[in-house]
Design a protein around this nucleic acid. Structure first.
Length: 432
RNA sequence: GGAGAGAUGGCAGAGUUCGGUUUAAUGCACCUGACUUGAAAUCAGGCGUGGGUUCGCGCCCACCGGGGGUUCGAAUCCCUCUCUCUCCGCCA
């Protein structure tokens, strides 16, 4: 959420920036109208409240002295009704304002390249050399299926439907090994606190990170998750529970930066992506991810983004997977992001780089929604934190990349050195 | 699943019986100053969050787990939801 002051004192400039960077149309005249109404109604309402308070106090004092309070009660007769209607009008206007403001995306950082779509992203660097095959490489589905039916989508759809999978045997173990490897790397080498979090969260939590109110259709919602009527939703990423650990909290300055890592399944309805990536593990309703989250002081957040991205890159490097790092342009960034790097891994059968990690600095956008704050030594006012998150990495897509890049002509798949300890020392997996 | 007790500022913790000088006591922590070579200790003062309004000093409003209700007036009374704790039962 952007600072409400931007919509008052710098409305025209803010609307212009949103339009040029994100192509987002802010309804300026409606905002102006609502803001004027809000101001009038709020002043009116608070005046009535002040009036009521002072009269009630007088009544209390008169009563204490044993005076007759009937005339005082008569004088206050219709104040309650006036106040009720003023409050109701104010609430209507404030809800309307809130709904607009909660749906406005973050403003990109000035360092982000301008552009309407992914064609305008900037490649920052490349690592590794895409392998040259002296045979026609198979895609990950064929590679894994050939290793003792290791990846079975028919079983997935039987159990749950389209976009679900069952992994078996060595492929399932490889998937687990990747997860453990990533989590160990980040917690022992990169300073993250290992964290286990709920996979179902409430709506306040989803509002905090920006999934609600605007992107509810991307989520799976669960009815009657507890005995009551509270609506819960499956997390689309561990960013949601991790970042919300500090919702409505005030940290001490010296507690920052906070670094959290968690492995969770992620659930996405993939509404609006019918027909895209229908084959294979690239786009599933359920996938595993190791997520990295930072909570930092504002002046540290850009530096933290570089570190966070570096930590995700380290995973790819140790797995010896070629990738490139891309700085997203203004039009391609997520709702809450101010600056984002995507890491894209080389997929030989698609002959292109595909997203495997997305690392973003949200600045205070989420912190404002969550009221996640910290207090500097000696300062009396708490201040909003900055929040960052990134995949380190998406486990399913890492498995895809490993299977495709490390396949051999005989159908076996070599295990990278860094992963071998997690595979019981095995250097390659093959059909048995 | 059954029975009971609770939720109050950064933290701890009064106030809730019986609604009204409570601008929520007090302590800890924190900030400023005094004392000190410096520190500790001590003393004095300050110190919740969000919002509105004002050039500013300031003034005003809301907030005692969430929502609703009763009332001129609610931390306090009523309803409801959530969460926590104790005991019993069940259970991976």
């Amino acid at each position: 959420m952007l600072d409400a002051k931007l919509f008052r004192s710098e409305l025209a400039e803010t609307a212009e920036r949103l339009k040029t960077t994100r192509g987002f149309e802010l309804d300026v005249s409606r905002l102006e109208t609502l803001e004027q109404q809000r101001k009038d109604l709020q002043v009116h309402t608070e005046t009535l409240q002040a009036e009521r308070n002072s009269r009630s106090k007088s009544i209390g004092q008169a009563k204490a002295k044993g005076e007759d309070i009937a005339p005082l009660l008569a004088a206050v007769d219709d104040l309650g009704a006036q106040l009720d209607s003023a409050k109701a009008e104010l609430a209507t206007v404030q809800d309307a304002l809130q709904q607009i403001i909660a749906g406005v995306p973050n403003l990109p950082d000035a360092s982000v390249p301008l552009g309407p779509n992914e064609d305008h992203n900037q490649e920052v660097s490349r690592w590794g050399e895409p392998r040259r095959f002296d045979f026609a490489p198979s895609d990950h589905v064929d590679v894994a299926s050939a290793i003792n039916d290791g990846m079975n989508f028919e079983l997935g759809s039987k159990l749950a439907g389209a976009r679900f999978v069952v992994l078996q045997g060595q492929i399932a173990r490889l998937h687990r090994a990747l997860t453990q490897f990533m989590l160990d790397l980040h917690t022992t080498e990169h300073g993250y606190q290992e964290t286990y979090v709920p996979y179902l969260v409430n709506h306040d939590t989803l509002f905090g990170t920006g999934q609600l109110p605007k992107f509810g259709e991307d989520l799976f919602h669960v009815q009657g998750a507890t005995e009551n009527q509270v609506a819960l939703s499956l997390i689309p990423t561990a960013e949601v529970p991790l970042t919300n650990l500090w919702r409505d909290e005030i940290a001490d300055e010296d507690q920052l930066p906070l670094q959290y890592a968690a492995h969770t399944p992620c659930f996405r309805s993939e509404a609006g992506s019918h027909g895209r990536d229908t084959r294979g593990l690239i786009r599933q309703h359920q996938f595993d991810k190791v997520e990295l989250v930072w909570l930092v002081k504002p002046e540290d957040s850009m530096d933290a983004l570089e570190k966070l991205t570096g930590h995700a890159e380290k995973v790819l490097q140790l797995l010896e997977l070629p990738y490139r790092k891309v700085l997203l342009c203004t039009g391609d960034m997520g709702f809450g992001a101010a600056r984002t790097y995507d890491l894209e891994v080389w997929l030989p059968t698609q002959e292109k780089y595909r997203e495997i990690s997305s690392c973003s600095n949200m600045l205070d956008f989420q912190a404002r929604r969550m009221q996640a704050r910290f207090r500097r030594k000696g300062a009396n006012k708490p201040e909003l934190m900055h929040t960052l998150n990134g995949s380190g990495l998406a486990v399913g897509r890492t498995l895809v990349a490993l299977l495709e890049n490390n396949q051999q002509e005989d159908g076996s798949v070599t295990v990278p050195v860094a992963l071998q300890p997690y595979m019981g020392g095995v250097t390659r997996i093959a059909a048995e």
